[in-house]
Design a binder for these strands. Structure first.
Lengths: 221, 221
DNA sequence: CGCTGGCTTCAAACCCTCTTCAGACAACGT
DNA sequence: ACGTTGTCTGAAGAGGGTTTGAAGCCAGCG
């Protein structure tokens, strides 16, 4: 895995560049989009680990952008704006933003809040019952036994274990693992799921992988 | 499952009571601790879904409290304080706090941020009496027993439980579940309703699904 | 009291989705 | 170049959900 990628959606190039420098200095990969439209497109293509969204973009309302981003994924969104009103904060946070920073802000605070968001997502229990998954070592164990998984199988399991019990649609999985570049009528996801389930079954993990007909797959939580 | 419990750690009783009122009004369970010591104890005992931590407690440094809380669990922690300095924010967020609110803050903003934290962690489930429905996990339980529903049955129940007691017409249901793509004289809705009712009856949920002659169906509220 | 219209139940056919399998292809190390 | 391992594709198959129509039921009403 490469270092996490952060997408900045900001029409003011000066601000964008400052942000970019701060973040790259802190060791992040950074992508930049100069309009809401481009931001939405890049969000689909690059699958950033986090999005910094400037409000007051010329082409779209900030709330709309948040909602559209939320439709397709659960990426953390931090809103940046000069508008310091309670109503606006409540509105944006309610629509799906994860944090709200008021310009001008100190780079260190931005950095701290970015890290909080990333920490919240990655720390989310990578173990579940007898199943443990170490993203660093790319190692999975079930009841202290090591489980040999192929790369794709590992990625899929890593996705599911983030929220045990939660159902992930084929589309979500395709989006996350294959970056949405899957042919239309493909059943690749199904096949990998079947393989994964077979390996889990070998180690007595029978009902672990639940398939929800018409919807997707989930880990039994 | 009861509604999520929020622990307030705050030595000023006036502030604590105001917070408590705001939160209970919003439908949360609230616990209160008047010192860091009591806060740590209550956090262990009550297993709150979220902690509001006032800085400037007499007995401990706020950073210490955050660290100690973090040792034992991953509960979201929102720090409340009058100190508005970047260093302090960065320090607390770095130690494990999830958000940082500066007094005086508007209750609505607090509420919005609380909801953001809970949204990220918990999957909010809809419930009505002994019936619970989790849209994320697509699981339904009645009196702690799991209910196996077909996709359509689940969708219908999910619709009805949104407003228990309210009567939904066949047309509304057809619109919501089938996007209005149902043939004219079809009685599909009726059939699924009957199936659903049968499954509820198997688990002693007798009068749960009410049919209002000439109008439609509703959950007994 | 029987008619009528709407609700409910049942069973059978359909059809879609998921599962499984086998084979081709690509990527990698030897 | 060879073998191994992982990935993708297509097809066959089973199982289960969905739909349909018909028959049974009940309430309201003349």
């Amino acid at each position: 895995m490469t270092s996490p990628c952060i997408l900045i959606i900001e029409d003011d190039l000066d601000i964008a560049n400052v942000l970019k420098m701060d973040l790259t200095d802190a060791g992040f990969e950074v992508e930049h989009a100069d309009s809401a439209m481009n931001g939405l497109i890049k969000a689909r293509e690059e699958h950033p680990a986090l999005i910094l969204l400037d409000l007051g973009l010329p082409d779209f309302d900030g709330g709309d952008v948040v909602q559209r981003l939320r439709k397709n994924s659960a990426v953390p969104i931090i809103v940046l704006t000069a508008r310091d009103t309670v109503d606006e904060k409540v509105r944006l946070l309610g629509l799906g933003a994860d944090d709200y920073l008021i310009k001008p802000f100190h780079p260190d605070e931005l950095l701290a809040r970015v890290k909080v968001q990333l920490r919240q997502r990655t720390t989310e229990s990578l173990s579940m019952g007898d199943l443990t998954l170490d993203p660093q070592k790319r190692l999975v164990t079930y009841k202290a036994e090591e489980l040999r998984l192929s790369p794709k199988e590992f990625d899929i399991l890593a996705l599911l274990i983030r929220q045990p019990g939660r159902v992930y649609s084929r589309q979500e999985i395709g989006q996350e693992i294959w970056q949405g570049r899957l042919p239309e009528g493909s059943n690749v996801v199904d096949v990998h799921m079947a393989n994964l389930r077979a390996k889990l079954r070998d180690l007595d993990g029978y009902g672990l992988l639940r398939t929800v007909r018409g919807v997707g797959y989930a880990l039994r939580g």
